[in-house]
């Protein structure tokens, strides 16, 4: 499965980004790492060029929310991204806040999986179960259509 990843905006925190690439590779994903300092359009464009199924954005320096507000509007300009799995993680707010507030907000911005200050492996486990759930769902809808 193909995953596009990178750190959004003007964010230059690179350590997590490297670890994410390594962990994804270790779990058997084909990774397209756009690195730090990546703008939203570049993420979506990379998904289009690679045919990736997952977009995993990370944000460490506090820019996450500003960019996330733009996600729906920009994504709507693309015609073939409806099935893309969207995931975001890192430090998703400036200062502190709790997950109960953050997660619904980011889901509303258009993300399927939201990991505020969640350890990477836990996050990637969430991704795996999300993918499995979706496969089951897809199979069910297919069967009920038949």
């Amino acid at each position: 499965m193909k995953v596009v990843t990178g750190v959004v905006g003007n964010d230059i925190h690179v350590v997590a980004n490297r670890l994410i690439e390594l962990s994804l590779n270790a779990r058997g994903y084909e990774v397209f790492n756009l690195g730090v300092n990546t703008y939203l359009e570049e993420f979506f464009d990379a998904v289009v060029e690679t045919g990736a199924e997952v977009l995993l954005i990370s944000s460490l320096n506090g820019e996450a929310e500003g960019w996330s507000r733009e996600v729906k509007l920009l994504k709507a300009k693309y015609k073939h991204l409806d099935n893309l799995i969207m995931m975001i993680g890192g430090n998703l707010v400036v200062g502190s806040a709790n997950a109960e507030d953050i997660i619904p907000k980011y889901k509303n911005y258009g993300f399927d999986i939201v990991c505020h200050q969640v350890d990477l492996n836990t996050g990637l486990d969430l991704l795996e179960s999300f993918i499995k759930d979706r496969e089951v769902k897809d199979r069910d809808t297919k069967e009920s259509n038949e």
Binding site: A46, V48, E49
Partner: peptide, 9 residues
């Protein structure tokens, strides 16, 4: 030029 994204192709 016909391409599929602004950033790459």
């Amino acid at each position: 030029i016909v391409g599929i994204t602004n950033t790459f192709s």
